[in-house]
């Protein structure tokens, strides 16, 4: 049976997240199997069929409840670097400067936050030296100083949240 009619039916459903959606989100945030039929294995653990799990994940991706499915790489272990950075931008320049910052491929995330330092972004670069280069080009492009906050120590990281 093709998964497609099931996908269409679920997309038309007005319901928000049901218990099975939540169970899938909670179960699949890590430990996705590496084997020929990983969805069949994961579905078995959830007590459903492979086709149903594929259809559910498809719909959750289409609805943007899930932003991603796949491996999450640890860039430092690949030889690259991450660095949190922030700028203090006058309110009337914030939108324009945020767009300038977004345009750099080294910028992975960019958030507005309530503080004098009101623009916070994460630089992800292929080499450690790339962080300083990115800071310099962003300062040159925007005309505002960039404060960098490299991690000095990581105590804990687990971004999984219960749905």
């Amino acid at each position: 049976m093709s998964g497609l009619p099931m996908v269409e039916a679920l997309l038309q459903s007005p319901a928000p997240l049901d218990d099975l959606d939540r169970a899938i989100i909670n179960a699949l945030q890590g430990g996705f199997p590496i084997c020929e039929r990983p969805f069949a294995v994961a579905a078995g653990q959830l007590g459903i069929g492979e086709a149903e799990l594929l259809a559910r994940v498809d719909v959750l991706m289409a609805r943007k409840v899930l932003t991603r499915f796949g491996p999450l790489f640890q860039i430092e272990r690949l030889g690259g670097a991450f660095c949190l950075a922030a700028m203090a931008v006058p309110g009337d320049r914030l939108e324009a400067v945020a767009a300038q910052v977004n345009a750099f491929p080294q910028v992975a995330h960019n958030y507005g936050r309530d503080h004098t330092l009101n623009l916070w972004f994460v630089l992800a670069t292929e080499t450690p030296a790339g962080v300083a280069e990115a800071v310099a080009v962003i300062e040159a492009a925007t005309g505002y100083p960039v404060f960098s906050f490299p991690k000095e120590k990581e105590y804990f990281v687990d971004m999984r949240l219960r749905a």
Binding site: Q29, I34, F73
Partner: peptide, 28 residues
Amino acid sequence: VMARLQALLDRGAIRRIGVVPNHYAIGY
């Protein structure tokens, strides 16, 4: 491909494999 991904996972170059929910969509 499976062996390489497993090796990247084992040495921490992959933190995990799975889904990433939109925090807003799940209520956070």
